[in-house]
């Protein structure tokens, strides 16, 4: 990639990186695809369940012919056909208490695209415990946000949301173009963090409202009483 400051060294860093992507749907699918395009060395993908017709409005790694089949198989086939030079490891399950520690332990960086807060909080806890960087991407209707979490350097997800939101529904309005846009921003942030190009926006939330094409960078705060990260000493940036 002929990007100033990236060069062979940046490409080597990506090639030597393992990224865990939690879920490969509307957000996680394009995240995995762009990581594959950028030449990430290894993808570890976790997503359970079989492909449903209602997934196809946003889940770009899936194929119509795979309806009823495991989503994770569609994701793997699409990614390997797209870039056969990367390693794709798949887990036919969502992030859960049994697999989170091992999966996070296997990765250098984690991308979270899960639709449920309990999965996100679990991944956040593991990333903080294992000092792994976490790119948290989320969307709703025409809005989306990305937060880069580096334990010791930035607030964590529990600093942002100290309690589980009571009103989040599993079903949410989604436009595939919005989820892809947010996914791509998440990958940009991850690549900035891994390679040192650009600005990884540590301590900031990037929020976009695509209806008005408004972008905000919000300074988020580390909570000294955070139940997850308060014991992690602050590191100099």
């Amino acid at each position: 990639m002929d990007i100033p400051g990236f060069g062979q060294e940046g490409q080597e860093k990506l090639r030597n990186t393992t990224a865990l992507v939690s879920r490969t749907g509307g957000l996680g699918g394009p995240i995995a695809l762009q990581l594959a395009a950028a030449g990430i060395g290894k993808l570890v993908l976790a997503h359970g369940g079989n492909l449903q017709p209602s997934d196809l409005n946003r889940q770009v790694l899936m194929r119509h012919g795979s309806l009823g089949q495991p989503r994770i198989e569609s994701a793997r086939e699409t990614l390997q056909a797209f870039n056969p030079h990367i390693t794709v490891e798949t887990v036919n399950a969502n992030i859960n208490e049994e697999n989170a520690e091992e999966l996070v332990g296997s990765a250098d960086i984690v991308f979270d695209a899960a639709p449920r807060f309990n999965e996100r909080f679990l991944l956040n806890r593991q990333c903080v415990r294992q000092r792994k960087s976490l790119i948290d991407a989320a969307m709703f209707s025409m809005e989306g946000q990305v937060v880069t979490i580096v334990p010791g350097l930035t607030p964590c997800l529990a600093c942002l949301y100290p309690e589980e939101p009571p009103h989040w529904n599993r079903r949410f309005p989604v436009l595939g173009a919005v989820s892809s846009l947010i996914a791509n921003i998440a990958v940009v942030q991850g690549i900035c963090l891994l390679t040192g190009i650009g600005d990884a926006h540590l301590g900031k939330m990037i929020y976009i409202d695509t209806a008005g094409m408004n972008l905000r960078k919000i300074a988020i705060q580390r909570r000294i009483d955070c139940a997850v990260c308060q014991s992690v000493p602050s590191a100099a940036p």
Binding site: G26, R116, V174, Q221
Partner: peptide
């Protein structure tokens, strides 16, 4: 532009720009 973690004790001043964010988690 900055998150406030103490809204009960935060005092309003002229032209404050308040941004209230509902948690989102869609994917």
């Amino acid at each position: 532009g900055s998150q406030i973690t103490n809204p009960d004790s935060f005092s309003l001043e002229r032209d404050h720009d308040l941004f209230l964010m509902m948690p989102i988690s869609g994917g």
